[in-house]
Design a protein around this nucleic acid. Structure first.
Lengths: 143, 143
DNA sequence: CTAGACCTTGAACCCGACTTCAAGGTCAAG
DNA sequence: CTTGACCTTGAAGTCGGGTTCAAGGTCTAG
């Protein structure tokens, strides 16, 4: 199987497959006489695993740590379990942040409906969003 | 007021202030005889506005669009209102995504507790995370 | 007069997961 | 024999919001 077929089979780009190889998530494949990469079904499973793990929100570094264990013959389940727990905690933290942000946005929106734009004085930029006192340097809620 | 005082007053770094100037969120300030930037209270309010808008999750490009209107003498409230609505929709979309991801992770975690690592065959990488059929190329849930 | 705390500039670097570009080699069909 | 679809490599670009580095100039206190 060539790289394009592998990529099509899993639904990723060929560049992504080469990228995984560079990043050592995929082993260097055997090569045909023409220098083309040759893959077997295991490679399909491996790229599939990578994508599934990614869809669970694991980073490529984390996924590589799983694959490294596997390649060294260690059953990675305990490690995977830890990573899932970490990720779950992170997702919940993030959800809480977003919930707080949502509330703030709803308040801003309500305010924008209550206030008359004509009252927006020249002194401030916009009366909907007004500068808050800066207790801690709040680096903003990133995505 | 010099740049360090402005930065301290708002709680940002001096580099961030210069960055806002480069990105045209802050106008080029007047300069003292020594070439130092000189700011007034309006500048403090403006940087404060930027940070507050950022904490509502607006991007610098969006914030600049607000400031541009203001600088051209247009009351930006309607535009701000639209941006807030957009952002709110985005946050809610994101929360829904995260909720789905959370559920997936909980299922994975439950599975990891049910399954015995010893049953993890050599054929797959890890029996907790198994490749799913790939209907649409799922580019993973990004943060 | 010198130390140190400020200020100036431009350029490079950071994160992650790729994509894009450039410049070529290979192979099957017509 | 050419077209076009594949494949190869390495380097660079993308996104956002800055930070870090390098190499200086300025000002104030002691």
């Amino acid at each position: 199987m060539r790289i394009g077929e592998l990529a099509d089979a899993v639904g990723v780009s060929t560049q992504a497959v080469r990228y995984y190889e560079r990043e050592r998530l995929m082993p260097a494949p055997t090569r045909g006489g023409n220098g083309y990469r040759a893959y077997d079904d295991q490679a399909v499973a491996r790229v599939g695993f990578i994508r599934t793990a990614q869809s669970a929100g694991l980073t490529l570094v984390q996924i590589r740590s799983i694959l490294d264990l596997r390649d060294r013959g260690v059953i990675p389940c305990d490690h995977v379990s830890d990573l899932i727990d970490d990720r779950l905690a992170e997702v919940r933290r993030r959800m809480a942040e977003l919930a707080a942000l949502e509330e703030e946005l709803v308040q801003l929106r309500d305010r924008s409906e209550r206030l008359n734009p004509a009252d927006c004085s020249d002194g401030d930029i916009c009366h909907i969003i007004t500068a808050q006192p800066q207790p801690q340097p709040q680096p903003a809620v990133s995505e």
